[in-house]
Design a protein around this nucleic acid. Structure first.
Lengths: 230, 230
DNA sequence: CGCTCGGTTGATGCACATCAAAGGCTGTGG
DNA sequence: CCACAGCCTTTGATGTGCATCAACCGAGCG
């Protein structure tokens, strides 16, 4: 597997694996393979038996759940370095609680469940790092929950700033993933139209700028200001 | 410490510690002490440096965060067997991200951070169990997020059923913790008045019954029915 | 060329927040 | 023992943010 070998070289750069030797990585990921996905491809679907977990190498995936009303709700945006479905690998017959859908072209390192049980859990340091990723995810959910009563423009601002924080600010103010208004709406539990009304207003003000699905935040200070209005 | 010794006897009954011997528990909890709290006492406050974590022994605690608008949002209800603040113990100088407030009379086993770093993390099995608790908490948050677009009566029904599920159904249909309408509202991001309107309607229908802060669900089937209406 | 997908705009209506007022219950202090 | 304050609950009147519905446009694509 050429792609796999190439991917192993990238893994060092993720905090999850920092300090691991190439041999250790090969051992942990043995039997894994690189999955290349295009826009809207599914890695797996909510309800499927979970026979593998994985690491996002490149691009992004949205993790969705069908709501009681039928529409999808986006639970999380997974970007490079994020583990996916690792948290449920400990269960005897795990089921994916969410669907993973590719946003644009992306790459995913898919690893058999067995590796997790027999190799990953044997490394206490690794478990703690995964716990830390899990905790980050919970913190994001809590941050969002804190905004439930806030007006929509604050919710959108919070989401954009949260995604922006994954970049070092140096890389410019581009969001690290292609994002449609619908996806923002699905993540916030709002309607597309309302999100558009908020964001096209900001476009006119020059706070943000979008080319295709790439969103650039030109005036983060203004968005932060919006967050602070009580 | 008499209270501590007594508490150690109870710890076996929690899944977190099932299978541990008394000696192991003493080792893990050495230096800990039992904190007895009354209604609305605070264990700690959001923003404080986190020098200890703990386990809920009896009663319940609500974990809150101040929202951007000043009001509190309830992130989680912790009931016996739940660990509190364990997830942040790995950080060098952790800060409590939330406040913990007693609901009625409760008991909490407070354990120094050092124990976590030097003893708890040395037991892979224990880390995995804590990860499982963390995952449960995230799942609850996700379940709630899935209801953001649902009408208020569905949200309330979902919350009540979720809390009820912590009991075996045999123990009757009493919620395992004293709960005011305000707390339900703060947990759902709704207003007290709206929650009251939903619940007093159910009281009239005979679906639920409340004596003091104890809520009894008489017709869980009806609440589940409400959840299913799309 | 028709198709789907993403974005946009306007009109209408409703679920829920907000505001206001009041009664019960508990604890506390004079 | 009463007065008072704080908390919880309740009910009604009023207002509004946002969902919903409907329509249209441009771009990419087989």
């Amino acid at each position: 597997m050429d792609a796999l070998q190439a991917a192993l070289n990238e893994l060092h750069t993720f905090p999850l694996f920092s300090g691991y030797t190439r041999d250790e990585l090969m051992y942990l990921c043995e039997g894994g393979r690189i999955q290349v996905t295009e826009h809207r491809d599914q890695l797996f679907s909510a309800g499927d038996p979970a026979l593998s977990f994985g690491v996002v190498i490149y691009g992004a995936y949205k993790l969705c759940r069908p709501s009681p009303m039928g529409e999808d709700v986006i639970m999380h945006f997974s970007t490079p370095g994020d583990v996916v479905a690792a948290f449920i690998m400990g269960q005897p017959h795990p089921i994916y609680p969410i669907s993973a859908v590719s946003m644009g072209n992306s790459r995913y390192l898919k690893i058999p469940q067995q590796n997790y049980l027999e190799r990953w859990t044997k490394k206490p340091e690794l478990i703690l790092r995964i716990q830390s990723l899990l905790f980050q995810r919970m913190t994001i959910l809590q941050d969002q929950k804190a905004f439930t009563k806030a007006p929509l423009n604050q919710k959108v601002a919070a989401l954009l700033m949260q995604l922006l924080d994954r970049n070092t600010r140096e890389e410019g103010m581009f969001l690290p993933l292609p994002l449609t208004r619908k996806e923002i709406a699905d993540s916030l539990g709002a309607s597309v139209e309302s999100v558009i009304r908020v964001m096209s207003d900001w476009s006119k003000q020059g706070y943000i700028q979008t080319t295709g699905q790439q969103i650039e935040v030109c005036r983060p200070d203004k968005l932060i200001e919006i967050l602070k209005i009580e």
